[in-house]
Design a protein around this nucleic acid. Structure first.
Lengths: 213, 213
DNA sequence: CTTCGTTATATCGATTCGATATACTAGGGA
DNA sequence: TCCCTAGTATATCGAATCGATATAACGAAG
C-alpha cells in the first residue's frame, strides 16, 4: 500500500523520505497521511527489493560519516559529533535521495493494475490518485472492480441495519456508514461515466495530463 | 480499539470468540469486521490483564481433553482423535466462553470515556455504537471532540485541494474525501442537536460539570 | 548563547490483518 | 457406507502500519 505511493511519487522525480511524506500529506490529505514508522521501513524494503536506489546528494563536501558507535555514554557520543563539527565538517545531515529503478517501475505498474488488496478505501484512493499512469481500459476496470465491492458492502451494511437489537446510537452509526457507501457509489458512477465519455475515442493514448512540478 | 468492542459486547452477555466476531460483523457491518488474527490475541491479552475470564461451558460431558501430542505422523494424531471419538467422547469442540470482570468493566468505562486514540473514524464509530453506556454529558463531549477533529481534517483536506499540481484523478480523490468529511460533520451536528434536546430533561444530573467551568 | 522550530533519518513495541493449520460436526450425494 | 463440502471453533505466523521516541543538524528568535 505504501509501496505504491512511494513508487508513484518517485516516478515523477527523485525524493528523500521526509519529502515523500510531505508530498503525500499535502497532496492527498488524510488519505495518505503516513507515519515515519512505516515510511522508512518501506523505503528500506523497496531498496532491498531493488525497486529503488539511494543516491548521495551532490551538495555534500565530505562523504557520509559512519554512524557514531555507541560508547556507553551519551556525552561520549555527543563529544564525537562535536569534534566532527569543529573539525570542519560543515555538511548538512545526509539526505538519502531515492531514485526508482526499472524493476521499481515494473513493480509500480503491477501494483497499480493488480487486483490484489484493492479492497479498502485507502488503497483504492491511492490507486485512483495515480490513475493517470494507467491505460484507459485499466482505469475503467479499476473503477468497476471497486464498484462491485461497494455494492457488496452496501448489501452487508443494510443487512446490519435490519438488526433490531441495535439501540439508537449503534443504529445511527450503521445508517451513516450506509450513507457513506452510497455516496461513494454515486461518485464512482460519475467517474465511470466520465471515463466512458473520454474513452469513446479510437485508441489508448497515454497523453500525460499532469502538471510538471 | 478491539478491546473496547470486545468488552462492550461482554457487558451484555458472556460470549466465545467466534460469536464475538459474528456479532461485530452482523451488528455493525464494515465498521467492525475483525479478523481472527486480531481477535484471539486480543482475548488472550484481556485475559492476561484480568479484564475477562474464560469459563468452561457446562454442556460438556467430559472435561476438556489435553491437546493431541505431536507423534511425528499426521495419521498417528488422527488415530488418537478417532479413538477418543469412538470411546464415547461426544462433546463438541471446546468453546472458551468469556465473561467480563469488574476490572474489565472499569477498563471499558475508561476506554469509552477516555480521549486517547479516538482520532480515527473506526474508533469513534465504535465508541458511539456503545454510547448508551455513557452519561449524557460524556456522550455530548465525545461528539464535540470528534467534531473538532473533523473541522481540522476538513481544513487540511481543503488545503490539499488547493494544490494545483494535482491531475484530474488525484483532485477527484481529494474532493471526494472533503465531501465525506462534510457529510460526517453534518451527521455529528444532527447527533449533537439531538443530545442537547434530550439532555434538557431532568434525567441525568452529572454534578461535576463536563463542560465549562 | 541558549532555546525553539523545522528538517531529517531511524528504531521500538504494540496492534491489526490475511493466510494458514487444526479440530470437530452435520448434511448431501455417489 | 464413505467421502466431500460447508460451517463452527480456536490458534499462530509473518508482514504492515502506527505512535512514540531518539538522534542529529541548523537557522532564527530572544
Amino acid at each position: 500500500m505504501l509501496d505504491l505511493a512511494i513508487l508513484g511519487l518517485l516516478e515523477e522525480r527523485d525524493l528523500h523520505g521526509y519529502e515523500i511524506r510531505r508530498q503525500l500529506r499535502d497532496g492527498l490529505g488524510l488519505l495518505a497521511n503516513v507515519s515515519f514508522g512505516s515510511l522508512y521501513p518501506a523505503l528500506a524494503r523497496l531498496e532491498r527489493a531493488g525497486a529503488v536506489m539511494a543516491t548521495e546528494p551532490v551538495d555534500r563536501g565530505a562523504p557520509t560519516r559512519s554512524p557514531v558507535p555507541p560508547t556507553g555514554s551519551l556525552s561520549g557520543e555527543r563529544a564525537v559529533l562535536r569534534a566532527r563539527r569543529l573539525a570542519g565538517n560543515r555538511g548538512r545531515r545526509s539526505k538519502k535521495v531515492y531514485r526508482i529503478t526499472d524493476a521499481g517501475r515494473r513493480m509500480f505498474a503491477d501494483l497499480l493494475a493488480g487486483t490484489g488488496s484493492a479492497d479498502d478505501a485507502r488503497s483504492f484512493g491511492l490507486k485512483l490518485a495515480f490513475a493517470r499512469h494507467l491505460a484507459p481500459s485499466a482505469r475503467l476496470a479499476l473503477l468497476e472492480r471497486r464498484r462491485v465491492q461497494l455494492r457488496q458492502s452496501l448489501d452487508d451494511v443494510r443487512a446490519a441495519a435490519h438488526d433490531d437489537a441495535l439501540d439508537v446510537y449503534a443504529r445511527s452509526v450503521v445508517e451513516h456508514t450506509a450513507e457513506g457507501v452510497e455516496q461513494d457509489i454515486r461518485w464512482l458512477d460519475r467517474l465511470i461515466e466520465g471515463e466512458r465519455a473520454n474513452g469513446a475515442g479510437p485508441e489508448d493514448r497515454p497523453r500525460e495530463g499532469a502538471g510538471t512540478r
